[in-house]
Computed example of a mutant assay.
Amino acid sequence: MDPLSDAIRKSGADAFVMYASSRDADMRYLTRFTTSDPFVYFKKPGENGVIIISQMETGRASRESPAAIMTRAEAGLPELLKKEKDPLQATAKMIAGQTGGHILVPPQFPVGLAQALGEVCTVSVDKGTVPSLRAKKTKPEIALMKEVQKITETAMGKAVALIRESKPKKGILYSNDKPLTAEQVKYTMHCHLLEHGCTAVDTIVSCGEDTAIPHMTGTGPLKADEPIVIDLFPVNEKTGYYADMTRTVVKGEPSRGIREMYDALREAKQLGISRVKSGVPGPDVHQAVVDFFAERGYESDTRGFIHNLGHGVGLQVHELPTVGPAGKKLAAGNVITIEPGLYYPGTGGVRLEDIGAVTAKGFDKFTQFSEELVL
């Protein structure tokens, strides 16, 4: 079964075409080739894909990619550039010359190139075939993601250890006689990740009032007796696969409100996990947690639980499937997060996030890290 070939045939197109660098998750998935420069990928129904790249990249591409390799010279680009002043027009004619008069492109295809292609062939837009393919992970992909998660948890452990070992002075946490900052905690985690071939951006280490804003990245000294939300989602640079996890901790004595929110949060996460298995609609899993929070007196609108229960993870940190109102049925091989959170301005916020694979029987949880609140 080849869903991409089926999509091409159903659209009436001659080929599927992408133009992007490997930073585009769909391109990396289809080609397994890594480069910061954009290149062409095309696939005709029932045939293997082909990538068109510069001569200097052919040796590396032949090692990395299962696709057939064609140089830009072989595709006729140098000759076209002699005739065309506009590089986009030349590229469009090169693509049309290899693919035919009707092509299917993904929604993120560059607009300028699509317009140039529209002058030489018919262009149709696909409705998400490749992201849907990516959503179902193979056993080797799941193994790669489990390895990233192990590294992530070790980095998280270093962050928690820093906070645990800190000393409160006048409401501020100190480490080695200096205020312990969000930046220092992030730096410690990022260094560990780099040592193990991973990188992370937009890491969250928020504290106190900032924790009521889910994606506030956090800055400055960390406070005693206040919630500290640590959300870490690194990528393995070699494989391109992500992991994702969140923990909330307090050094000192949390308020009663934070304790009660956290107790409800742990139960909500376990409830969500217990509802996961293939064939179950993502919206149903999300709604079960919404209903649970409502029974505990927590809202799910402009405050309280204000985001989806989870999301897919893979070559992007946020991808299909959605575990929320807009989601569809979960399928075996989906790798998702379950991450309930509660956010109240004036009180603070708490969030827990685990990652795992959907199976026919339930949820294969990758996350093995402690849920300890008070350090």
Rank of each mutant, 00 (worst) to 15 (best):
K158Q: 07
Q55N: 12
N48H: 10
G324A: 13
K137D: 04
K10S: 15
C121E: 01
S62Q: 15
H307M: 09
R9H: 10
V280Y: 00
G76R: 08
R9N: 14
I336W: 03
I172Q: 05
E209V: 06
N334A: 12
V250L: 12
L342C: 06
T91I: 08
P110N: 06
I51K: 11
H192C: 00
I336K: 09
L232V: 09
R72W: 10
E237L: 13
A67Q: 04
E183S: 05
R63C: 08
T154N: 10
H307Q: 14
G100M: 15
E153K: 12
T138Y: 12
F305V: 09
T246C: 13
Q368W: 03
I151S: 09
E141W: 05
R9T: 14
S274E: 05
S206P: 07
S124H: 01
T91M: 15
A20C: 04
A61H: 06
Q287S: 11
A20E: 15
L80W: 01
E64G: 06
Q115N: 13
K186V: 07
P179S: 11
I8P: 01
Y174M: 15
T58E: 15
G197K: 02
G304P: 10
K10P: 00
H192A: 02
E57N: 09
K328F: 01
L81D: 03
E372H: 06
R275W: 00
G240L: 07
K137T: 05
M27T: 13
D210P: 02
A135W: 08
H192M: 03
S300C: 00
G218L: 11
K82S: 08
H196D: 00
F293D: 02
A243W: 12
K223M: 13
Q316H: 12
L342N: 00
H190C: 13
V205H: 02
D244H: 15
V374G: 01
T217I: 15
P38K: 06
D354R: 10
A90D: 06
L144R: 14
M56P: 03
Y242I: 05
K361F: 06
T322F: 14
D225C: 00
Y241A: 07
E147D: 11
V105E: 04
G279C: 11
F109D: 00
P131I: 03
G197T: 12
F369D: 03
T188P: 00
N308L: 11
G101W: 05
S65D: 06
V323K: 07
R134F: 05
Y242Q: 04
G252H: 06
I51L: 14
H286D: 15
T99F: 04
D210R: 13
G349N: 02
T99Q: 04
I51T: 06
K146C: 03
G128W: 09
A182V: 10
K223P: 05
Y41F: 15
I151K: 12
P106Q: 09
V229D: 06
S65E: 07
L265F: 03
T359M: 10
A90W: 04
P87I: 10
I258H: 03
A116C: 09
L375K: 09
T122G: 00
A332R: 12
L222C: 00
G101D: 14
T71F: 11
S300E: 07
P227M: 01
L222R: 05
V205A: 08
K43A: 02
F363L: 02
R134T: 08
T248Q: 08
G157I: 03
